[in-house]
């Protein structure tokens, strides 16, 4: 058991080390998300009423699209140096590779959220710094990385993967996006845990299902 965790952590840590050195993925996610937010600030009228109404949607759409870009990067680098094959030759089962890469992606998305959400709060003039927001960000980041890692690994051999990944990823994570947007709406309107409970439950169920299924199914996709 500890062996398993050590292997997963070794893969994620390796991603972190590389990320700290060239800052590819986090810059991709954060830059893209901040850009979308900035464009919205002058594309729509952000009076207090409007901000509450459209803010959550804009925020999560920005994070979702940016997440896709980041996920693409995370796997593309692994393919360009064909290091994915080094992982495949290693005597570890495929689900550990999946969990390790997902953990890395989860950390990248979380980092991006830590930068993007305060900016969102400032630009849209909304109060989002509450524990509920931490929970929403966590479940969303877990779901994004669970689904995104699987799909990024799938589309990595396609030339047009920049197009293919969003096409696969966004429809599948729609429930998660709805959950994030709705819970954030409750949150900016001063809602309580109770009001967003059913959405958070849905998101957690989504996360658990996709982590389990993806880990089981991952062995089918990597070898050519």
């Amino acid at each position: 058991m500890t062996d398993t965790i050590l292997v997963i952590w070794a893969i994620a840590r390796k991603d972190l080390v590389l990320e700290i050195r060239n800052k590819d993925v986090v810059v991709a996610i954060t830059g893209f998300a901040l850009l979308v937010l900035a464009i919205f600030t002058f594309a729509v009228d952000l009076s207090q009423m409007n901000a509450k109404l459209i803010g959550p949607g804009v925020l999560w759409a920005a994070i979702a699209f940016a997440g896709v870009t980041g996920l693409n990067r995370a796997f593309a680098s692994e393919i360009e140096s064909s290091t994915l094959e080094a992982l495949l030759i290693a005597p570890i089962s495929r689900d550990l590779i999946y969990l390790g890469k997902s953990l890395g992606n989860f950390l990248f998305i979380t980092t991006a959220q830590i930068i993007v959400i305060p900016t969102f709060a400032v630009l849209f003039n909304l109060i989002v710094f509450r524990w509920e927001m931490v929970a929403i960000c966590m479940v969303t980041a877990i779901g994004f990385s669970a689904v995104g890692t699987l799909f990024a690994a799938m589309s990595v051999r396609i030339r047009a993967r920049e197009v293919m990944l969003p096409l696969l990823f966004l429809p599948v994570v729609t429930p998660l996006l709805m959950a994030a947007v709705e819970s954030t709406s409750y949150l900016v309107n001063g809602g309580t845990w109770g009001e967003m409970a059913s959405w958070l439950q849905l998101a957690i169920a989504f996360d658990v299902l996709f982590i389990v299924i993806s880990a089981l199914i991952f062995q089918n996709i990597l070898e050519d």
């Binding site: 699987l150 799938m154 696969l168 429809p171 599948v172 729609t174 429930p175 709805m178 959950a179 709705e182 059913s198 959405w199 849905l202 169920a205 989504f206 299902l209 299924i213 199914i217 089918n220 996709i221």
Partner: peptide, 21 residues
């Protein structure tokens, strides 16, 4: 085949979420 399975698994969740929505 993996996408086919994922799509079918996602369907009830999407319906549930859309209903809640």
């Amino acid at each position: 085949a993996v996408i086919g399975v994922i799509g079918a698994l996602d369907a009830p969740i999407i319906y549930f979420a859309a209903n809640l929505w």
